[in-house]
Amino acid sequence: MKRLSQKPLSVVILCLSLLMCVGSLTFLGACVHEDGSVGTCHWAAVACSALGGLCALYSLLALLIINKDLSAGLTLAVIPTSILSALLPGHLMPLCLMSSMRCQSLMKPSMVLLGFAIAILAAVQAYLLLTVRKGSR
């Protein structure tokens, strides 16, 4: 419980990362064409899912590891990973050409919001871990 109270944001980061990991392949993901074929947007979704999984792993370890500096390092590692996943759909990997498609209207904004939310939270959590007063008197 003490670990949780020291790293309240890590729990949120973990939840959001899992949401990104699972969501990008399911309810937030790209559509499959009527003929069953998939486009590049599908592969963008898979990549986002993998990066989301990586963020989840980092934040879980950061949560479990007691050493503050190590925990802060893992939290810092979440930042570039989540920003990458925010930039993947549409910017680094092409999506469908029509904005009304699921990949453009749902997946891309979801990944951007989730990615940047995770990055900001991770930055705050790392800052807290690195600057917190070294124990009380």
Binding site: S99, S100, Q104, S105, L106, P109, V112, L113
Partner: peptide, 13 residues
């Protein structure tokens, strides 16, 4: 602003 802007296509649909 961010949410409505990002998901305007989705809301429209």
């Amino acid at each position: 602003l961010v949410l409505v802007r990002s998901f305007s296509s989705l809301i429209e649909g």
